[in-house]
Design a protein around this nucleic acid. Structure first.
Ligand SMILES: NC(=O)c1ccc[n+]([C@@H]2O[C@H](COP(=O)([O-])OP(=O)(O)OC[C@H]3O[C@@H](n4cnc5c(N)ncnc54)[C@H](O)[C@@H]3O)[C@@H](O)[C@H]2O)c1
Ligand SMILES: NC(=O)c1ccc[n+]([C@@H]2O[C@H](COP(=O)([O-])OP(=O)(O)OC[C@H]3O[C@@H](n4cnc5c(N)ncnc54)[C@H](O)[C@@H]3O)[C@@H](O)[C@H]2O)c1
Lengths: 218, 218
DNA sequence: GTCACACTGTTAACCGAATCACACTGTAGA
DNA sequence: TCTACAGTGTGATTCGGTTAACAGTGTGAC
């Protein structure tokens, strides 16, 4: 039985990796897999894999490993990927369009029910078969279709404002791609995708590497 | 004087947040800022801010705070954002195009010197004023222009293969947007932007929240 | 049947980052 | 000049996650 304890964020972050690997092995006809095998496939330690899988409540058998199908189902349940969550996207710009067109989100339980923008040139056009609606229609759709997740890809300046109107319409989670933090009331979950943070780590590590090995002439 | 110790990744990740805030205050004409002020602006604790700023080596004064300009310069130096790093992007698809068009990357020391794809329909077209080149030309450009960073936005299937050819041409860092991990030789830095991981955290936390408060009827 | 051992489950040790507590400092104000 | 105190700097503590150590177990081999 799956634990109801809260799953650590690092583990949540690794779950998708396990999922893709497990599904692949499932398709190859395997029914069980050991954590040592998973570990070397994903370039991590077996212990960490075991600890992560422990969160699912699925028990493995010595010399056999874990049953793959129950694992997949347990992880998907912990992530809520077993049944679709209704989402909307606001800000049909460059990034927004890329996300809308990213098919794998469907496998992650994300169902984009509406796309909104406030640019007159974009409203009414179609992106991946979905018509772009005006921002004014957003609260109504959130309420009528009990939307759970708002994907925020508007310019930084209006991000807080749009987030506010999402929340007041009843959204419970926001997936924000804007560089600045946004504030929301208690109970609403915000997850930010910080591209700048990722780049900072990359370049910081790069400099360190250069510092260790006196860079090749440039 | 800036420490040469390695900066913890969590701190690196927060640096960009400080930078945007600091630059904004600088533009408002302020010369100093206290960590308590920064903390409440970014919704974090003052202690964490102080510890992070400690890495820069900049010293603050009681009742006055830290001098903003030196802080900005120190952080940019630690991130390598003070002088442009040459980069190329491979995979001029939806996501790749969005990244190319994302102006703020310029402020982060990233200079995209070339765009590559292997789709005959895309080669020769222009994205944001830059012509898309064939993948065959990539190693040559990496060598001739001593490119440091490769931005990887190709489909998952060919990601490893493209990464390999980047590395063998002499790249020292890869910014990968592909869902599966890629392996590189020692000394090459890889930073992955994992959208799925971010979504997993969002939805996992959402479920937890629902579990705590027995969700509104749906 | 029984033996070996690959693999699991669990408790303990470890480590790095976040947080705390508090002494120190030098400015602003009286 | 003196005082109060906002704000820094630092050593000590806590915490969460990772890693290690090891006992337990049931499968597969013979
Ligand atoms: N493009 C990238 O690669 C990238 C990367 C990281 C983060 N981001 C962030 O994502 C956001 C969008 O980036 P982008 O490159 O797609 O910009 P963009 O300008 O292409 O798209 C923004 C869209 O939002 C719409 N919009 C503006 N105000 C609105 C409002 N009040 N209500 C609804 N829609 C509104 C605009 O009409 C436009 O279509 C920005 O905050 C940016 O910082 C972008
Ligand atoms: N679109 C998104 O929102 C999104 C989000 C997260 C991750 N990703 C990942 O980013 C990558 C690209 O996604 P996308 O949506 O832009 O896909 P896309 O199909 O729009 O773009 C991929 C591009 O790569 C090119 N390409 C294919 N093989 C190549 C090769 N061997 N050499 C050079 N170029 C090649 C294609 O011609 C195409 O232009 C994928 O790995 C995807 O998983 C995309």
């Amino acid at each position: 039985m799956a634990k109801l304890d809260s799953v650590p964020a690092p583990t949540l972050r690794r779950f998708p990796n396990y999922l893709t690997l497990l599904k692949q092995h499932l398709q190859d006809g395997q029914s069980h897999i050991s954590c040592t095998h998973i570990a070397q496939d994903l370039d991590m330690t077996a212990i960490r894999v075991r600890k992560d899988l422990e969160m699912t409540g699925v028990v493995g058998r010595p010399r056999v490993g874990y049953p793959i199908l129950p694992l997949v189902e347990a992880i998907e349940q912990l992530l809520g990927w077993n049944e679709p969550s209704r989402a909307i996207l606001v800000g049909a710009g460059n990034l927004g369009s890329a996300i809308i067109g990213y098919a794998p989100l469907g496998q992650m339980g994300l169902k984009i029910m509406g796309i909104f923008d406030n640019d007159a040139h974009k409203i009414g056009t179609r992106i991946q078969g979905q018509t772009v609606l005006t921002t004014e229609q957003m609260p109504e759709m959130i309420r009528n279709h009990s939307i759970d997740i708002g994907i925020l890809t508007v310019p930084e300046k209006v991000a807080q404002e749009v987030a506010d109107s999402m929340v007041s319409a009843g959204l419970s989670a926001i997936w924000a791609f804007t560089p600045r933090p946004i504030t929301v009331p208690e109970g609403v979950v915000v997850e930010r995708v910080q591209l700048a943070a990722s780049l900072a780590v990359l370049m910081g590590r790069m400099l360190e590497e250069d510092r260790r090995v006196p860079a090749r002439a440039g």
